[in-house]
Design a protein around this nucleic acid. Structure first.
Lengths: 209, 209
DNA sequence: GTGCAAAAATGCACTTAGTGTAAAGATGTG
DNA sequence: CACATCTTTACACTAAGTGCATTTTTGCAC
C-alpha cells in the first residue's frame, strides 16, 4: 500500500472518485426510474455535483453508462495482459473471455445488459463498450507480437473473439435473463468456451467430435 | 411508369423519396461543412422540408447517416440471400462480403467511412450499421437453416464474419485512404478474402501453406 | 372536376442536452 | 500564510428532440 502504484496525487484520486460517483449515480437512476425517465440533472443531483460538472466528466448519459461497461470489460483485458507472451493469441483471448463469467464481473455487466437491452439508444453504449474492448485487445496483442504483426489478422481475430463474447452473452441472456446463480454462470461459461471453440475450428464441424 | 413492382402506394413512394432526400441532404451537409459544423435545420433546409419533418423521419443526424450505411450494407445482404440454400453459411457470407468490394457499393460506404472516421459520435453510426447488418445476417441464416439452428453458432459466426469485414475495411482504409481506383479495390477485395480465409481456418497458421 | 377522409408536413411552444465563459472554491507548494 | 493551479459552479446561450394543433397534400369516389 502506501504511495500508489500510479502517480496519483490527491487531485487525481478526487477526480477518479467523482467520475465514479457520477457513473454510479447514472446507474442508480437507470435502475430506479428506467430508460428515458430521468435527466442529466437528476444524475448530477444524485451524485452531489452540478449539472455542469457532469458534462466535465462525460459527454452524456450514454457515455457515463459506457464507462461502467468499460470498467468490467477492463477486467477481462487484465487477464489477457497477464497471459504468457508465448501463448497463442487466440488462446489468451479465450482465457480473458472466461474472466467475464466470474460472478463479480458478470453481475454488473449483466445488469447493465438487462437495463439497456430494451432501448435502442442505450444499447449503443453496450456496443461502444465492446468495440472499445476490441480496440484494446488489438493494442495488447500488437504489443505482444511486436511490429511484425499482421494488422489484418490482428483486427479480424480480435473482432471475432469479441463477437464470440457478445454472442455467448446474448444467447445466455436470452436463455436465462439476468440469472446470476452458479448454474447459470456455468452455462454462460460453457457458451463462451463453445463459441471460441467453434471459432478456433473455423466454424467447420457442427459436432467437433 | 405504370404500377410499381412492390405493392407501394404513391404515398409510400413519396415517403421513401422524402426519407432519401433527407438522408442525402445530411450527407451533403457533412461533405460540405464537416462534422459538427451544421445543424438539423441546415439538413432540413437542404432537403426542402421543415425541421419538424426531419424528426418525423429520423431521430437525429446519426440516424440519418446510418440509413446511408444501411442502404449499402443492404446490398451485401441481398447477395447473401441469393446464395443457394445448400451452401455452407460461411461460404455464403464470404460471397456476400465480396459484394462490398464492388465499386458501386464501396464508393459511398468508403466516403462515409472517411467522413466519420475522425469523429467519435459519428463513428457510432458506422458501428450501428455494422451491428444492424449482423442482425440481418443472423436472421437470414436462421431462416435458411430452419428452427434447428444453433443460436450460439449462428450469432458467433455472423459476428465473426462481420468482424472480418470491418477489419478488412479498416485496414484497407488505413492503407489507401478513400482511394477507389480498381487496384485499390482489388486490395480491399483481397483483404476480405484473406480475413474470411483466416476465419475459416480458425486463425491457426500464419501461412496456411 | 368536386368533395371528402386519411395522411403527411408544418408551426409553435416547451423541456432537455450540451458548451463557453468567468467567477468562486479547493488543493498542492514554498 | 501566500500563491499558482486545478476543479467546481453559476449563468447564459444554441441546438436537439417532442407534443400538439393546424394546414397542406394526396388518394379515392362520385
Amino acid at each position: 500500500m502506501s504511495t500508489a502504484t500510479t502517480p496519483s496525487s490527491r487531485r487525481e484520486l478526487n477526480k477518479a472518485a467523482t467520475r465514479r460517483a457520477i457513473a454510479d449515480a447514472a446507474l442508480a437512476q437507470l435502475r430506479s426510474k428506467g430508460e428515458g425517465n430521468f435527466t442529466v440533472e437528476d444524475i448530477a443531483a444524485e451524485a452531489g455535483v452540478s449539472r455542469r460538472t457532469f458534462f466535465n466528466y462525460f459527454t452524456g448519459v450514454e457515455s457515463a453508462l459506457a464507462s461502467l461497461a468499460d470498467r468490467f470489460l477492463e477486467h477481462a483485458l487484465e487477464q489477457f495482459r497477464l497471459r504468457p507472451a508465448e501463448e497463442p493469441v487466440l488462446e489468451s483471448a479465450r482465457a480473458a473471455l472466461l474472466a467475464l463469467a466470474d460472478p463479480m464481473t458478470a453481475a454488473p455487466i449483466a445488469e447493465l445488459f438487462s437495463l439497456t437491452s430494451s432501448s435502442q439508444s442505450l444499447g449503443r453504449c453496450e456496443l461502444e463498450a465492446w468495440d472499445h474492448c476490441t480496440d484494446q485487445i488489438i493494442a495488447a496483442a500488437r504489443e505482444r507480437l511486436g511490429a511484425g504483426a499482421d494488422e489484418l489478422q490482428l483486427r479480424a481475430m480480435a473482432g471475432s473473439v469479441i463477437a464470440c463474447g457478445k454472442a455467448a452473452m446474448s444467447v445466455w441472456f436470452d436463455e436465462r435473463g439476468a440469472d446470476l446463480s452458479p448454474e447459470s454462470l456455468a452455462v454462460f461459461r460453457e457458451h463462451l468456451v463453445t463459441a471460441v471453440g467453434m471459432l478456433a475450428n473455423g466454424f467447420a464441424a457442427p459436432q467437433p467430435s
